[in-house]
């Protein structure tokens, strides 16, 4: 049986890859996918600790995180489609009307 530490390491790797994707990619679709990757890493942690502590709360929280991820993806993609209609681009560097 893999230990909790091994799960935490895997989840840390996925989270780090996700955060690198959010920062270095300029394509908004890939940035949203990287955010989903990070949320998934968090879910792995929650399930691993749920098993370790023999407590179902972790799995219940995972379900709520998945719910929030679904809503976030829907709204984020809607915003992106509208942005593409207005500017015909999904590059985050070209969207800087609000720059301070």
């Amino acid at each position: 049986m893999p230990s909790t530490a091994q799960y935490l390491m895997l989840s840390a790797t996925l989270f780090a890859i996700g955060i690198v994707g959010v920062i270095i990619r300029r394509n908004m679709i890939t940035v949203l996918m990287s955010i989903e990757l990070m949320l998934n890493a968090v879910n792995i942690n929650l399930v691993a600790f749920s098993h370790r502590l023999a407590d179902l709360q972790g799995q219940v929280f995972t379900i709520f995180v998945i719910t929030v991820a679904a809503g976030e993806a829907a709204v984020g993609l809607a915003i992106m489609i509208q942005l593409y209609r207005l500017r015909s681009t999904v590059n985050v560097d070209e969207v800087k009307t609000l720059h301070g």
Binding site: M9, A12, A16, I19, V20
Partner: peptide
């Protein structure tokens, strides 16, 4: 910078 942040976060978790 992005790769640096990723490595830093991984080292922190590790």
């Amino acid at each position: 910078g992005g790769i640096g942040v990723g490595v830093a976060i991984f080292v922190l978790f590790f």
